[in-house]
Amino acid sequence: MMDELKKSTILAYLQAYNSFDIDGMIKLLHADIVFKNIAAGEVNTQTTGRREFRQLAEQSKAFFTSRQQVPSNFSFTGDQANIDIAYQGVLAVDLPNGLKSGETLKLGGRSEFTFKDGLLIAISDYS
């Protein structure tokens, strides 16, 4: 798979994510997708398969009134792509860590994407 095609797939996935288009995200995922969220070196969320991914995406959608992942610094090696991510989301609910509904959450991190058969088979988000 060419790097430009990988990049366009990642950008389509992020556009769907940013606009809460879960069907748009799912159509870019391999049936055996593995998603991981890693914070401070610890895996705090993991899903396997489209069904579990969809459940997590539906749950996550309720936490924000708006959200945006902005990618930069794409690098490609074989079937993998790595990018830096600037994340910003406006909360729809109060969080246990003290952040309140209406406040803006800002994070920096990186994401690793792995491709199989032209689809995303693994996504790991690091913050």
Rank of each mutant, 00 (worst) to 15 (best):
P71M: 01
Y13A: 02
L119T: 02
Q15M: 08
Q46C: 10
A40H: 12
S111A: 10
I85V: 15
S66I: 14
Q88H: 13
A12H: 03
L95A: 01
F35L: 08
M2I: 07
T9K: 03
F113W: 12
G78W: 05
A86Q: 12
Y126H: 05
I85Q: 00
S66D: 13
V93P: 01
K106N: 06
T45C: 14
S8Q: 15
G118V: 03
N18R: 04
T47V: 06
M25H: 01
L91Y: 04
Q15L: 09
T104N: 05
S75G: 13
P71V: 03
N44H: 06
K116D: 06
L119I: 02
G118T: 03
D3P: 15
N97Y: 11
A12R: 05
S124E: 15
A62H: 13
F63H: 09
Q15T: 03
T9C: 10
Y13H: 07
M25D: 12
V43A: 07
R110I: 15
I83K: 00
F64W: 04
D125G: 01
S111T: 14
I33F: 06
L99V: 13
L29D: 13
V70G: 11
A16Q: 08
K106T: 00
D117K: 07
G118L: 09
N18V: 06
M2V: 03
F64C: 04
E52F: 04
E58S: 09
E103I: 14
G108E: 08
D23Y: 09
S60T: 13
I33G: 07
Y87E: 02
L107H: 05
Q55K: 06
D94M: 10
D32P: 04
L105H: 02
L29V: 03
Q46K: 08
T77C: 15
F64H: 05
I22E: 08
G24Q: 03
E112H: 13
S19Y: 04
G98A: 02
Y17E: 05
G41F: 07
E103R: 10
A57Q: 07
V90P: 02
G89L: 11
I33C: 13
A92F: 09
T65E: 11
K116G: 05
L29T: 01
F53Q: 08
G102L: 05
K36Q: 12
A92K: 01
Q68Y: 04
G118E: 12
G89Q: 09
L14E: 07
G78K: 07
R110D: 11
F115L: 05
E112T: 02
H30N: 14
D23F: 06
Y13W: 12
G108P: 13
P71K: 00
L5G: 02
G108W: 05
F20L: 09
E103G: 01
R110L: 09
F20S: 04
S101F: 08
V34D: 04
I26E: 15
V93N: 13
E112C: 11
V70T: 09
G78M: 02
N37S: 15
S19E: 10
I123E: 10
A31M: 13
L29P: 12
D79M: 05
Q80G: 06
F64P: 00
F74E: 03
I123S: 01
S101R: 10
E42N: 09
L14T: 12
L120N: 00
F63V: 13
T48C: 15
A62T: 15
L99P: 00
L120T: 01
E103N: 07
I121W: 04
S60V: 10
Q68R: 07
E52N: 08
T48D: 15
N44L: 03
D84S: 02
S127L: 10
K7Q: 14
I38T: 01
P71G: 00
